[in-house]
Design a protein around this nucleic acid. Structure first.
Length: 581
DNA sequence: GCCGTTTTCGGCCCGACTGTTTTCAGTCG
């Protein structure tokens, strides 16, 4: 069994223990061990074999045995025991905001509720309010939050959908008869939230049946919803619906364009074709017969580039196909040269073991180097973020000295000294001037009191953003996608203030956030606000999340010049210096 | 269950908020 699966199982075991009302410290131990294992970077089977796994802090005798069983046998008795007596639906209820293990346990025991549906019914019948510790308000909140959960559960985050899609495509690649493959749909356009995964292949007619057979029998397929020669639909175990369409190779560019969308973009494509005397659909161009006019010659199309060229347009990258001005720009050949993943040279908002990160400063810097980067910025939490191991002022001093010492030895690699400083309720910062002056840069963000009104929250953030020591606003919309709603904030006003005061804004690329949607991104760019793509990384692996942010940056029309991560170390240093008055 | 001992037991991160209570438990970040 793979490390990632074991990390998930340990996490689940911790949760199951909570639901069983076990010693809270015991369940905590499982959660801790899960995190500890996540941070383990060595060869897991070897470490299990040699017993070295016990040296990982947080993994002791008992949990080492669970890990060992899972690595070698793929199953664990302890895990199976933990699952006994807890129906899957009970675990599911944890996804409802405001419901934790204690109350779910009570619901399970007193009302025999074992699913979200049963919970909803009980709430509607008014049976919850009668339960000890529950009341009318709680009952209403639960109903509201069930509704909210339902609304988002048919959507997946981009990183989850991308992972699922690439697993399916990888398996198809070597099937005989397949000529070209691609993802399509909103995933190809790199929207942050994906409805379902669309895959497209071109293939020989004779191979279609076999390709579909391979597709529906992929190990990730939970059930087959429909299976035909040109289109099949399956439900993946990740909870994502996935379509595969097969077309001829000649049709491929047309189908790819059509199924990539967006719908509005497609409408404009067809309208433009019409003006040239052509009809466009998902398979081909056809000439339109018009009285007194010569029939238009059908242009040869082998690729999407040809298709755009035939309409007198520059190739429009999928990310820009949202009817945000891409046709005008493509017609005048002034589409921007979008940021590429390879343009990144570093990132500035990462955590280390000084606060709630899993890896040390040296490990994080090493991982950044391995990605081919030139610099890394460390921004651990400030003291108010106690739950996230926020630093004391003393610890800041220690970390700053450690980074200075590291930089003296590091050859050609730079670690910048930063902080993720909490914005307190009144808009003041969590660090006094004396501490702020120690950093190369200051990221500010909201971690408390999310339920302010939009006006209050905006005032709070804008007040903090104006502070002379502040470099950039971190996770600006506070959105934890699909897990909770963003906090209310008037981003237009925030962007205006950022522009006025020369402050930057962060695209938080942490997969649970994917903050600052592309429309705001585009608006920020047009206002002259610089953007940082930050992974909010809590581990070495987490640094890779920066690349998810590139997708949002591209959708926001951002180029190398707009994104500070693409600048040289010297330019970044200058930028940080001049922004820090 | 894990850790770290002044090693074989005692402590394990915490502040804010909400809704329930009438002094606090549960949840969240």
């Amino acid at each position: 069994m793979e490390k990632k699966e074991i990390v998930d199982i340990l996490e689940e075991m911790g949760t199951l223990l909570e639901l069983q009302g076990a010693n809270p410290f015991k369940s905590r131990a499982f959660h801790n061990a899960s995190r500890a294992l996540e941070g383990f970077t060595g060869d897991l089977p070897a470490a299990v074999q040699s017993g070295a796994i016990r040296e990982v802090k947080g993994i002791g005798e008992g949990i080492a045995k669970v890990i060992g069983d899972l690595v070698t046998a793929g199953r664990s008795r302890d895990y199976e025991d933990a699952r006994k007596g807890i129906p899957a639906g009970v675990l599911d209820m944890l996804r409802i905001q405001g419901l934790g293990p204690k109350r779910i346990r009570l619901l399970h025991q007193k009302l025999k509720i074992t699913s979200i549906d049963a919970l909803e019914k009980a709430a509607k019948d008014g049976r919850l309010a009668k339960l000890e510790g529950f009341g009318k308000k709680t009952e209403e909140n639960i109903l509201t939050n069930i509704e909210a959960l339902r609304k988002r559960s048919d959507k997946s985050l981009f990183p989850v959908a991308e992972e699922a899609a690439s697993r399916m495509l990888a398996a198809l690649k070597d099937v005989k008869g397949i000529l070209r493959t691609s993802v399509a749909g909103s995933l190809r356009r790199r929207k942050e939230v994906i409805g379902d995964v669309d895959l497209l292949v071109s293939a020989t007619d004779a191979s279609r049946q076999n390709i579909m057979k391979q597709f529906v029998s992929h190990p990730d397929v939970e059930r087959v919803i429909g299976q035909g020669d040109t289109k099949s639909t399956v439900m993946l175990r990740q909870g994502i619906s996935c379509d595969l369409r097969i077309v001829s190779d000649q049709e491929f560019p047309f189908a790819l364009n059509y199924f990539t969308g967006s719908k509005e973009h497609n409408v404009e494509m067809r309208t433009r074709a019409r003006r040239l005397g052509l009809s466009l659909n998902e398979y081909a161009f056809t000439a339109v017969e018009e009285k007194g006019k010569k029939k238009t010659k059908i242009p040869a199309v082998r690729s999407e580039e040809d298709l755009y060229k035939a309409l007198g347009l520059a190739y429009v990258p999928p990310e820009l196909r949202e009817m945000m001005g891409e046709f005008e720009a493509a017609g005048e050949h002034r589409l921007p040269k979008l940021l590429e993943p390879g343009d990144l040279r570093g990132t500035l908002h990462c955590h280390t073991t000084y606060s709630d990160g899993l890896h040390t400063l040296e490990q994080m810097a090493g991982a950044a180097k391995d990605l081919g980067w030139e610099y890394l910025g460390i921004a651990d939490h400030s003291k108010a973020a106690a739950y996230a191991g926020g630093l004391s002022a003393d610890a800041v001093g220690k970390q700053v000295r450690a980074i200075d010492a590291f930089n003296e030895k590091a050859d050609g690699f730079t670690v910048f000294k930063g902080t993720e400083c909490d914005i307190l309720t009144d808009g003041t910062l969590d660090w006094p001037e004396k501490v702020l002056s120690l950093f190369d840069y200051v990221v500010i963000s909201v971690h408390s009191q999310f339920r302010m009104s939009e006006a209050e929250m905006t005032k709070r953030v804008v007040t903090a953003l104006r502070h002379p020591r502040v470099t950039m606003l971190g996770h600006p919309t506070g959105r934890l996608l699909l897990s909770r709603d963003p906090y209310p904030i008037d981003m237009m006003q925030v962007i205006q203030v950022a522009a006025e005061y020369g402050k930057a804004i962060e695209i938080n690329a942490h997969p649970m956030r994917l903050d600052l949607d592309w429309r705001l991104c585009k608006h920020a760019k047009e206002s002259g606000v610089k953007i940082f793509i930050n992974p909010d990384a809590h581990s070495m692996d987490g640094l890779r999340d920066t690349f998810y942010g590139v997708g949002i940056a591209r959708k926001g029309w951002l180029t190398q010049a707009d994104v500070v991560n693409a600048w040289s170390t010297a330019d970044v240093r200058n930028y940080l210096k001049q922004s820090k008055k």
